[in-house]
Design a protein around this nucleic acid. Structure first.
Length: 281
DNA sequence: CTTTAACCCTGGAGGC
DNA sequence: TGCCTCCAGGGTTAAA
């Protein structure tokens, strides 16, 4: 569910509702996430002000004045919603942050692949944290250029799809976006990344940027209040998907049947006619 | 160094 | 109805 646009929408929601407010309570009902939540975390940040909520890739960085940053990941099934502090706890609601302005953020994650990790400011820059240090550039920043992409894929034998997914060159290209972006750029997902031509890179960079921006825009219109949402989020992008989960359906460009393959235990969707394999000369 | 695959966990869908 | 298998948008880790 949470890909970069959902994470960014969540970040904006937190920014609007809780940044500038002081944390007054932080009940944790389930510590067993991807990594166990530090039982000392609430005491570290209680009575401190949430000074900023930033995003790095799919990580949310909640900065508490002076003391440090909680690094939050939503995993595969996580979400953060605004709710009344005393509202009924549903199954898989694991913790909440309660602020002195009355806002309350509740973390919900059925699969518990997400994480809430504490990084005290005396441990140095949060960007040097092992989880963040190896991440590629932000796709919606001016660091994401054709030259950066070409330098990153140089010599790589791994497929372009798995290379994008790995996040070491550019972050935020999840499994859906990888298929959608490669379709837009008309690049075969199994093509070795190192064989990407400049012409293909010239198509791929804007394809990724546009795919993410489209999702963010539709998220902005239908999920403007993602953090406040009571309904079911997450389906908005799939509605616009050209290839994702469209196997055996006609390609919208050429009517050829969309194919589903598996790469690195993840599904990939593509049009075998629009997205040709490179010549193997 | 690179790449692969097992694994963390729950829930929903579909077959029988 | 139940029971089984497979699948899921992410990321880490050990092993080859």
């Amino acid at each position: 569910m949470p890909e970069l646009p959902e994470v960014e929408t969540t970040r904006r929601g937190i920014e609007q509702t809780a940044v500038g407010a002081r944390l007054v309570n932080m009940p944790v009902r389930e510590r067993r996430l991807r990594w166990p939540i530090d039982s000392a975390l609430p005491d570290c940040i209680l009575n401190h002000t949430l000074s900023a909520c930033r995003r790095r890739g799919k990580y949310l960085l909640m900065e508490f004045d002076k003391v440090g940053t909680t690094i939050v990941h939503l995993g595969m099934s996580g979400s953060i919603r605004n709710c009344a502090p005393d509202s009924l706890w549903q199954a898989h609601d694991h913790l909440q942050w309660e602020f002195d302005n009355g806002s309350c953020l509740r973390y919900h994650d059925p699969r518990r692949f997400g994480s809430v990790v504490w990084h005290p400011s005396d441990a140095g820059s949060v960007l040097a944290h092992p989880r963040l240090a190896e991440l590629g550039v932000e796709p919606l920043s001016d660091e994401f250029t054709v030259d950066h992409l070409l330098a990153g894929v140089k010599g790589k034998l791994q497929s372009i799809k798995q290379t994008l997914l790995a996040g070491h060159i550019v972050v935020g290209v999840g499994n859906i976006y990888a298929s959608e972006s490669l379709f837009r750029a008309r690049i075969h997902p199994e093509m070795p990344a190192g064989r990407l031509t400049r012409q293909q890179a010239n198509r791929l960079v804007p394809a990724i940027v546009q795919t993410l921006n489209d999702a963010l825009d539709s998220g902005g219109s239908t999920l403007r209040d993602y953090v406040n949402a009571t309904g079911e989020p997450g389906a908005y992008f799939v509605l616009h998907a050209a290839v994702y989960e469209k196997q055996n359906q006609p390609c919208k460009r050429c009517n050829t049947k969309i194919k589903r393959i598996v790469q690195g235990q993840r599904a990939t969707y593509f049009c075998p006619r629009c997205q040709r394999m490179p010549r193997t000369n």
